[in-house]
Amino acid sequence: MRTAEIAHLLKLEWQLDRRQKHAWGSMALYVVSTIYVCYQGVRHLFDIPIWNALFWIILLFAAFNALGRSFQRENTGRQLYLYTLASPRSVVLARTIYNGITMGVLSLLSLGAYALFIGSSPMNDARLDIFLLVVIVGGIGFALVLTLISALAARAGNGVGLMAILGFPIVLPMLLSVMKASKLALDGLGWDITGKYVLWLVLIDLITVALAWLLFPYLWRD
C-alpha cells in the first residue's frame, strides 16, 4: 500500500516536471553556464586535484540550485491538499527518491559537460567504474541530505538563502569524503582503497534517508 502511494507520488513528481520543462532546462543551463564560466577562467585543467575539486564544487552548487525549489514550487494550498491525500512519510520518501534520481542524472550530465570544456585528461588513468560510481553516489547523497534541508528552509519561509546556510555545514563532511574518494579513483586506485569511502558514502546516504523519514512528519504538521 505504502509502496503504491510512493509510486503514485513519484509519478506525480515526474508529471509536474514534464509539464514545467523549464525546471529541467534551468538546472541544465545552470550547470552548463557555471562550467562555461569556469572554462573562461581556467581553460583546460590537467592537474588532477584541482580538476577534481572544481568539479565537486560545481556539482555542489548545482545541487543547491536544483533542490532549492524542491519544496517551494507548490503553493500552500496544493501542499495542504497533497498532505490530506498521502502520508507525510510517503511524500518525503517519494521526493527524496525523485531528487536522488534527478541529481544522479544531473551529476553524470555535469561530468560530461565538464569533461568536454575543462578537459578529460585527468580521467585517462582513472578507474572509471569506481569514479562514475562515486560521482553518482555523491550526487545522490547531496540530493538526499538537501531534500530535508530544503523542506526545512521552505517551512521557515526564508527560501534559498537559509537553505545554503543550513545545508553547507551538513553537506561539508559528505563533500570532503566524496572529493577524497573520487580523487583516489582518478589516481587509478582500486576497490581495496576506495571501497571504504564508497561504503561510507552509502552509509551516510542511508542514515540521511532514515532521518528524513523519521523527522518529516513533524515538519509537515502545523
Binding site: 551516510i204 542514515i207 523527522l215
Partner: peptide, 15 residues
C-alpha cells in the same frame, strides 16, 4: 521550536 528541533536532530546525528 519545531523547526529548530528537527534541524538539531538531523545535524547532531550526521555530525
Amino acid at each position: 521550536a519545531r523547526l529548530a528541533a528537527i534541524y538539531n536532530i538531523f545535524a547532531y546525528v550526521l555530525m
